[in-house]
Design a protein around this nucleic acid. Structure first.
Lengths: 162, 162
DNA sequence: GCTTGACTTGAAGTCGACTCCAAGTTATAG
DNA sequence: CTATAACTTGGAGTCGACTTCAAGTCAAGC
């Protein structure tokens, strides 16, 4: 049998970049299952738990409220989500949300790029807004000297770089 | 001179999809300049103001706290941001943030896709993980429409744990 | 023994971003 | 005239997500 490596809450916090307090808080609100305790009552975590925490922090980045994460955590430990059609719907619908978030973010990037390039026009991100006055100068096809900018839109697919 | 079209707060709220209360709140915290008033004290807005509100809601989608938006609103109404080097730095740095947020989001999309396709492995967004098994049963959540949740955080930030 | 450090607990406090409320004003309709 | 609607104001309340606090336990070191 394999002996599983376990971690203290401190190590777990470090590995996940989530504070100890927050981890306890997640347990308190039952987002995480009650962690096992050692004899002295200290929590112990294993890789599995760390993965769940990482998934939470991942989902958080997508703007999902903690309360709505539970089904996702279930699916993450479960086998086949296809067994739960409503879960599949949830996943799809959240996927759509994220895709449109990406689009919004990309618009902000574009806004910034335009600003950085010529800083002349306020061209909004969510809609073509006709602005009343303002004689539009069009942008010149100049390549910008930005060092940091390489605009890779949707980066790669199955990233999960490790 | 041109007759500018103006809007009531209600119309503005509708056009921007931001509630009247929130618009007043933004004014209260000086995120928006004090709106002009009519004789009766009612606020009036013009396209320019609407654009600013749209920009705020755009930046909000990128997870930027309201307090940090002020410089961006300045640059949006100002002419050339290149006159303000720190502003340029801010823009660049926020751009980087967004780009990495996009990457994170894309990872969640990938996670979901993997789940949807084969629902077999827990392939995390940030790490390869082995799949612990557990036969939880889950309850069915409502197929709720999952609306306009947006709000995300800064990217995961490279280590430098303290 | 005493102290330090890593943990435990439940409860209270904070913070950002709204959201709601009560009271008041003004314009229009009946 | 009253009533309704659309606004105004300052202030209070809510909500999600932490974060801090006070008090306590336990093991190891001096």
């Amino acid at each position: 049998m394999k002996e599983e490596h376990t971690f203290t809450i401190k190590q777990t916090a470090k590995k996940t970049n989530i504070s100890e307090d927050t981890i306890r808080y997640y347990e308190k609100i039952a987002l995480l299952p009650r962690a096992e305790r050692k004899d002295n009552g200290h929590r112990i975590y294993r890789q599995e738990d760390i993965d769940t925490i990482l998934l939470i922090s991942c989902l958080k980045k997508t703007g999902m409220p903690l309360d709505e994460m539970r089904p996702f955590l279930t699916v993450s430990t479960d086998a086949d989500p296809a067994e739960y059609p409503e879960l599949v719907e949830l996943l799809k619908s959240h996927r759509e949300n994220i895709v449109s978030q990406i689009a919004s973010l990309q618009q902000v990037v574009d806004f910034i790029d335009v600003k950085l390039e010529k800083g002349k026009y306020r061209r909004d991100c969510s809609e073509e807004i006709e602005d009343g006055l303002s004689d539009n100068r069009k942008e010149e096809p100049e390549p910008k000297p930005l060092s940091t900018s390489q605009r890779s839109y949707f980066p790669v697919s199955a990233g999960t770089d490790k």
